[in-house]
Nucleic acid binder design. Structure first.
Lengths: 269, 269
DNA sequence: CGGTCAATTGAGCTTGTTCAAGCTAAGTGG
DNA sequence: CCACTTAGCTTGAACAAGCTCAATTGACCG
């Protein structure tokens, strides 16, 4: 069966269609492209830091992380990848991968040579648009992460991250609602969360406990439960506009005018 | 006189030519485009947070900063712009500007409507390539900043930033060498540096003093002097590969193989 | 001369780190 | 079925990097 038709590819198609006007011609072109689909074990490398960027990798299923290991042995995760994300969109334009990418869970990754991606873009402008848009959103996420690491407390960072993942996962249908509360599978260990948030595992643990005690979130056996998304958003001062994924019912701003956005207010549900 | 022919535009042309193969046709197209050139006072807004991204802004001269102001009144600068940079490359692909941009010094900014930029790209693939490449590099810088904020000490962050600016300014010919030492004009106040580095102005002050005492840098009257660039690079664990700007004599890695890059070693001068 | 902006200094305090140990649940081999 | 291991989570106590608040200095400007 063609990789595009597997149920597993749904998240990617959703993201693609959400990023540009994709028609049958584009899908046919994608289906015809020489895509290689790989299965990757948890903790295994998807892209090695500093390697030549000859292929573009699509994360069809599972979670990935882009990271840097520092001289002192610590690690910082610069970005998380969820199903449907492009692991290294900028590889199309740069010669080398500036950071490594690993699988956080068992992953299914589709990859395609740069030349083939370029060929697709030359024939189908909307594919190029989609690619550019995904790259732009990845940049916005990176900017937002920088802001969080620079100016937010541990609790805010954690809440903000959980909100971001909420919106991203909701976009691909991986948020479930059960008796009012929302939730999703969060496959990261506390140590991995720490590497995303620029904290230590110990502190993530304590922060998580405090938030649990306050009833803001539950995290047990890789399941995250959010009793009141609006409350979590408030705790993380979260405004999801930067994700450009629409559907902000739970995390909406009060209005959409420039003035309103300046004082990004969060709506109570 | 056409904006493209002003001496002030040099940095932009250097960056442009460094990003793709730009010929006379492309330059002519740029010269013919309806570009609006503005002068902007220090501290004035170039782009307001949350506004519709209808124009692409080129920073011809002066320094700018992309920033977010948080609910608690603090500010985080997510990126610095130096002459030749595109302020908001991703605006071509997203509807709204996700953060504000201000002039840190008096600036000269050229701007162009999205539609005109798109038209240029449609006619001249190399202009599109250059744009994409600049966006990719901006992303790499953001990633690197995230790593710094998450896992580096104040001193390392500061040293790293000064190294990065060294490379970026050298690329546009704004680093001067005098009796062995290198230097450039750094127009930021300590408070602004703090907003870039995720620190307080007080702590930047003390960190700067310590580095001064160690003879790593001099910063006086907006002039930064670096007696020994390799030493500064070591202090900031800096590897400039992510800037994709070549010319790493002073900040080179030991080798260019994948293995070598993994343990990014810095060369002593 | 008063006013403003930036840099500087001091003292006390907080957030988050470090180090170390203990705990739980899920394998795994005998 | 049980000893043994391992990975992840939890806890405690001491510690430190960086923050806050507040005051001082110096330069420039009108």
């Amino acid at each position: 069966m063609n990789w595009l038709q597997r149920p597993m590819t749904m998240p990617f198609l959703v993201r693609l269609k959400g990023s540009a006007a994709i028609g049958v011609a584009e899908l046919a072109a994608l289906a015809a492209a020489p895509v290689e689909v790989r299965m990757i074990d948890a903790q295994a490398a998807i892209i090695v830091d500093g390697s030549r960027s000859v292929r573009i990798h699509l994360l069809l299923d599972g979670w990935s992380a882009r990271f840097k290991v520092l001289e002192n042995g610590t690690r910082q995760i610069a970005a998380l990848g969820v199903p449907g994300d492009v692991c290294n969109p900028e590889a199309l334009h740069l010669d080398r991968n500036d950071c490594g990418t690993i699988a956080l869970t068992r992953c299914t990754v589709a990859s395609l040579g740069r030349e083939h991606v370029r060929a697709l873009h030359d024939r189908h402008a909307s594919l190029r648009d989609a690619h550019a848009r995904m790259m732009a959103v990845a940049g916005a996420i990176a900017t937002q992460r920088t802001v969080c690491l620079g100016r937010r407390s541990a609790r805010e960072r954690l809440a903000h991250l959980l909100c971001e993942l909420f919106v991203r996962l909701r976009a691909i249908g991986q948020v479930v609602e059960r008796s009012g509360a929302s939730g999703y599978t969060l496959p990261l260990t506390q140590a991995e969360l720490a590497d995303v948030l620029g904290l230590t595992a110990v502190h993530v643990n304590r922060t998580l406990q405090a938030m649990r005690a306050d009833g803001i979130v539950q995290l047990k056996d890789r399941r995250l439960t959010i009793p009141d998304p609006a409350r979590l958003a408030r705790a993380g001062a979260f405004d999801g506009a930067y994700l450009h994924m629409g559907g902000d019912e739970a995390f909406a701003r009060t209005d959409t005018g420039a003035a309103g956005r300046a004082r990004a207010t969060l709506v109570a549900a």
